[in-house]
Amino acid sequence: MQVKEIYVSAPGKAILHGEHAVVHGKVALAVSLNLRTYLRLEAATTGKVSINLPNIDIFMSWDVSELKQLIPYFRGKSDEVQRLDGELVRILREFVGIANGNSDSCNMATLAFLYIYLSLFALSELPSLTVSVWSELPTGAGLGSSAAFSVCLAAALLCASGVIPTTLKESDHTSRWCQEDLELINSWAFKGEIIIHGNPSGVDNAVGTWGGMLRFLAGKIIPLSRVPLLRILLTNTKVPRSTKVLVARVKDKINKFPSIMGPVLDSVDAISCTCEKVLSEMTCEPITGEHYNILEELIDINQHHLSVMGVGHPTLDTLCRVTLARGLHSKLTGAGGGGCGVTLLRPETDSSVVQSTIQDLRDCGFDCWETSIGGPGVQQHTPVTIKQDILEVLNRY
């Protein structure tokens, strides 16, 4: 194995504008969250391969000798980055003892780990190693937690196998990979996402890889080179929802009222494009209050459009009402019908207002964090750059 120890992290994601409209050929803007998933990979001398996911109460371990039995199936497959081999996934399901039809995300995360590990090391000696992962992202909230996991997994295992270099210089605390290596990380992470979710768009793992903001249109993902770092509140209403049901609800409404819903989708498209233009301006000229005025108005308009589409929820209405009482502007992010919302914080927003708002939202039964959007994608770290509480968890295993 090429490394003895490596620490990596990747961000979660939120949809800033364009959710649901993107399904119908309109622009969506996805942004990175400064809530990250951290992974530690360490060479072991136990003769075992182990994965620890304390967020979801998973600890799995296999003897290297057991895994070697699978090598004939994986040999010759290690360069096939573009597509997932369904037969290999089936073999892994049998090996781990996961019944067909069981798509529990915990089981799928384990499969994604084994698939990438065996694919990358199939042509060499299987190393004994331990992977530990800890995330600041809530699972199942539409914030890209599984993609951040897949991106970290791909980056660490690609480094460990020598396919891409470790990028930390002696004087560095954090570092990033070159564009070619990032594309390789993204390709393997997308395989992990396919295993976990079945038919992902590729947006979540792309945000986890490149960070910042991405423009998504008709299946084409374009990372935007420069975006401002914006402070937000991220609120989880903790109301479960089905993305599939909500997407179908919007489609039904469009089919029923095409002359009404068509202009709504066009307006959401224009909101995304206008927001992209404003954010671009904010990176190359002095940021003014007018920039934030426009961003706030776009948030309000888009939230109303999403309610018209039928993906609002009383808890999201409560979120908007509570924050507006403090002079702040919010919208849902993702599928809607509950789930999460984002609230824009202006630079001059006093910390007392922020803390009072967070408390108001927690009093409603919601989870709420102050964070930011537009931060970096996957990174390699030295331990000193990782928050102490997270480092303690990673080093516990």
Rank of each mutant, 00 (worst) to 15 (best):
Ile294Tyr: 00
Gln379Ala: 15
Cys368Met: 03
Glu80Asn: 09
Gln359Pro: 07
Ala10Ser: 15
Ser132Pro: 05
Gly12Met: 08
Glu87Lys: 13
Leu233Cys: 07
Ser259Phe: 00
Val133Ala: 07
Leu88Tyr: 09
Leu88Phe: 11
Asp367Met: 07
Leu39Ala: 15
Glu94His: 00
Ser307Cys: 13
Thr243Tyr: 11
Glu276Pro: 03
Thr283Ala: 09
Asp363Leu: 12
Tyr292Phe: 14
His197Tyr: 04
Lys48Ser: 10
Glu370Lys: 13
Gly162Val: 09
Lys251Ser: 12
Lys238Arg: 13
Ile56Ser: 02
Ser50Pro: 00
Leu67Pro: 02
Met309Ala: 03
Leu84Lys: 01
Thr371Glu: 02
Gly25Lys: 00
Gly140Glu: 00
Gly25Glu: 10
Val8Ala: 04
Val22Ser: 04
Asn236Phe: 06
Gly211Asp: 01
Val131Lys: 05
Ser78Lys: 08
Arg75His: 11
Leu230Gly: 01
Ala109Arg: 05
Thr343Tyr: 02
Asp367Tyr: 05
His313Gln: 04
Lys256Phe: 10
Lys253Phe: 01
Arg241His: 11
Cys178Gln: 10
Trp369His: 10
Thr382Ser: 09
Ala10Cys: 09
Ser61Pro: 03
Asp269Arg: 02
Gly101Gln: 10
Ser132Ile: 15
Ala99Asn: 08
Thr235Asp: 02
Tyr292Gly: 03
Ser187Arg: 14
Pro200Asn: 02
Val133Met: 12
Pro127Phe: 11
Met213His: 03
Asn102Phe: 03
Leu126Ala: 06
Ala10Tyr: 05
Arg75Tyr: 12
Ala189Glu: 02
Val268Trp: 05
Arg362Lys: 14
Ile71Cys: 10
Gly202Leu: 07
Gly47His: 11
Ala109Leu: 12
Pro11His: 06
Arg346Ile: 04
Val8Pro: 07
Gly86Phe: 14
Gly310Leu: 11
Thr174Phe: 04
Met60Cys: 05
Ala148Val: 05
Ser50Asn: 02
Glu348Ser: 13
His24Leu: 06
His313Ile: 07
Leu53Glu: 08
Lys68Ser: 15
Pro286Glu: 07
Trp62Arg: 08
Asp63Asn: 08
Gly219Cys: 02
Pro286Tyr: 00
His313Cys: 06
Thr37Ser: 12
Gly289Glu: 00
Leu298Phe: 02
Gly25Leu: 05
Val31Thr: 13
Ala28Arg: 01
His17Thr: 02
Val131Leu: 15
Tyr7Lys: 10
Leu391Ser: 09
Gly338Ile: 06
Cys159Ile: 12
Cys320Gly: 03
Gln2Lys: 08
Leu92Cys: 06
Thr45Cys: 11
Lys169Met: 10
